[in-house]
Design a protein around this nucleic acid. Structure first.
Lengths: 185, 185
DNA sequence: ATATGAATGTAGCAACTGCTACATGGATTC
DNA sequence: GAATCCATGTAGCAGTTGCTACATTCATAT
């Protein structure tokens, strides 16, 4: 017999891996249980209900993603908007990050449908993204700092949409095209 | 008695309206049928299966959206990347367009989950967006034209994500911040 | 008027959903 | 050794799902 807390942690990790692999497609309690190699009965012993199951797994995923992203720009380093966008955009199609971004789009969509627990999760994750960008954004005080940060986050997230709809190749090329955005004819 | 074709058209319009209102949240055959004021039995008389029900409604929605977007930039008019992005970005939070964009994000997510019929629909819609942007994009031939277009589409779609996660206010401000993207400290 | 086929209603099946009641094993405590 | 409690298994309920079998009505053609 293993303590409930240990199992919870192990199951959480397995669920996170499963979500990253399969997205929010197969997320019935029975499928999640199979992915975590426990019975569905046990899932609801470790967690209160399905929302908590998904919520805990998503929280862990968010933390992992934050860790990955944190490495992209040095502590205290600050970049101009397009430079920061370029740096962040290059992450989206990297093999370690791609599953996170694809899942992120599905979570935001679930939040849009009002499906618990995703509204809260999406809001928290988005706030994290915005804070990270703002912290590394070099821009004069006259500009709406938060709005510029939001636009950068939007562009990065949009790359994930391109990735989903057309594959990573176009998404990667789009990211590389960021320096051309500022150029006129 | 009404001809099957007439009913199909009427039902399609009702379904499109319902999807724009409620997203992909309540899309069981019984709910869709209620929204269209027919019996679920009839839905599967007009359409082959649920995938065709959603597919036809989505196709109509895509056509409507294309119409709305078409008005944003004059026929034959061409703009520099950031200018085009600004023009398109301003649409996302406009009251008539907002429901379309929110639904679009949900469709892309469903496509990412492999849920029929959305992979095909999402691919077609995305191709339409890309073609529209490319057609209005003024940029020198040295640049990867398709990639720049993809980046613009990404940024616009990303605004919809901000809208979903944080509401239209920040999304609108982010769109207004586009001119600041090119500015350094 | 009768036959035919299209349009519609009623009822329900089988699979899956989240969740629960109940029983049982094994360890710990007294 | 008895009592207790945590951890786990079995079985199943009630609701929802996509879809279908079957019966019926109605319009039209002969």
């Amino acid at each position: 017999m293993v303590s409930r807390e240990e199992q919870r942690a192990r199951v959480e990790a397995a669920l996170a891996a499963h979500l990253l692999d399969h997205g929010l497609a197969q997320t019935s309690l029975r499928e999640l249980a199979r992915a975590a190699a426990v019975s569905d009965r046990m899932l609801l012993y470790y967690f209160a209900d399905k929302a908590e199951v998904l919520g805990c797994a998503a929280q862990r995923i968010a933390a992992d993603l934050a860790g990955h992203i944190g490495e992209a720009v040095g502590e205290g380093e600050r970049l101009a908007p397009l430079a920061l966008l370029e740096r962040a955009g290059a992450l989206v199609t990297r093999a370690e990050i791609r599953p996170y971004m694809r899942l992120w789009v599905q979570m935001i969509a679930a939040a849009g449908r009002g499906e618990a627990p995703f509204p809260a999760i999406a809001e928290a994750m988005l706030a994290g993204f915005l804070a990270w960008v703002e912290a590394h954004l070099a821009i004069d005080e006259a500009a709406d700092r938060q709005a510029v940060a939001a636009m950068i986050v939007a562009a990065v997230d949009g790359l994930a949409i391109i990735d989903i709809g057309r594959g990573p190749d176009l998404a990667a090329r789009a990211a590389l095209a960021i320096p051309h955005l500022g150029r006129a004819l």
